[in-house]
Amino acid sequence: MTKMMVIPKNFEMIKKLVDKSDAFLIGIENFSVNLPTSFSLEEAKKIISFLNNHEKEVFISLNKNIKNSELENLEEIMFKLNDFKIQGVLYYDMAVVNLWKKHRFKYDLVWAQEHFATNYNTCNYWKKMGINYGLLSTEITLDEIIEIIKNSKMKFILPLFGYLPMFASFRHLVNNYLDYFEKEKISNSYYMEKEGKKYMVIDDNHGTFVYSSNIINGLLESVKLKEVGLSYILLNSFNIDDEKFEEVVTMFNEVTIENSEELDKKIYEMFNNVDKGFLYTKTVYKVKENE
């Protein structure tokens, strides 16, 4: 049975959507990237308790690249999380896996090297290590996704609605540019524009992060993916109007084979920058062969 997982903007949104989602993915400050917000451990504790009371699953993202100087804090957080009732911790950096193995923490891990989950053998590599969940790449086609699901015993999480992460840097690329040309920085959020497309760029304490110009909408495809055994559909509220996001979550809950086309079309009407991402688009890498 496929579950719904939501990335919320805040506690208020969690409360609003608690009946519409089976699971929530939240970040912990200083250790999570590519999320609309991150919480202190104290705040997270309250959220987890609230979600536990509603019998909802909780996933925590510790998905940043980690420097040696951050290891002590990371270990402390991982210990504290072990006292909470959570399903899994998302990781990008292997420090998380190593600490998890050393201390035999009771929660599961979620392999979340976002652009790397592109074949089933790699998924099986992590599964053999005892890692039960994987966040699938959004740069592969629907057929490839289905093939991975069919050839691995991992429980997969797939982003099917929201802006997608395209770039992460330790550098403060917006700050640097504004500093260089002596311009004032008015917020952490800017847009990069090229050929009529706007890409959100965030320059914060962690560095610079860029997101897709379009929102991926995999509502139609979610029906097929449920059939083949996708474990979690991930819906991300980042940079999406709250009310519209709530409506989208409802639509993903209500979608059936019969109404899927109609609801999918409705999402296109709600947003003027929606597409199917790479679900039907193969990327190329040997340019000459594809000319």
Partner: peptide, 13 residues
Amino acid sequence: AGVSGRCVLSNFL
């Protein structure tokens, strides 16, 4: 400019 492996600008653009 980015963290190796975490940049898929080329894919999207």
